[in-house]
């Protein structure tokens, strides 16, 4: 395995690893706030849950972009 292949492998690992940091922090904050608001106003549970799911989906997309980049890099590994 050449140096280039090794660098590509590191890049693939970092792409999804670094991407997961931001999305993890963001999702944690969003979920925590959602639980807080449900605890404060239990009658708003349905609305909060729907909004939380939408928000989590958007945050998660960023990590998934990283995963897709990692997969593309992995495909280039043997080249």
């Amino acid at each position: 395995m050449t140096i280039v292949s090794g660098l590509i492998a590191i890049g693939a690992g970092l792409a999804v690893g670094l991407g997961a940091i931001g999305a993890g922090v963001g999702q944690g904050i969003a979920a925590g706030k959602a639980f807080e608001s449900i605890a404060r106003q239990p009658e708003a549970t349905g609305t909060v849950r729907t909004l939380l799911f939408i928000a989590l989906a958007f945050m998660e997309t960023l990590t998934i972009y990283g995963l897709v980049i990692a997969l593309m890099l992995y495909g280039k590994l043997g080249a």
Binding site: M72, Y74, G75, A79
Partner: peptide, 17 residues
């Protein structure tokens, strides 16, 4: 199992995986 196998499966074009 290996990067060669990935190549054989369309090498980089992830939709072919």
């Amino acid at each position: 199992g290996s990067a060669e196998a990935a190549q054989a499966h369309g090498g980089g074009l992830i939709s072919d995986w």
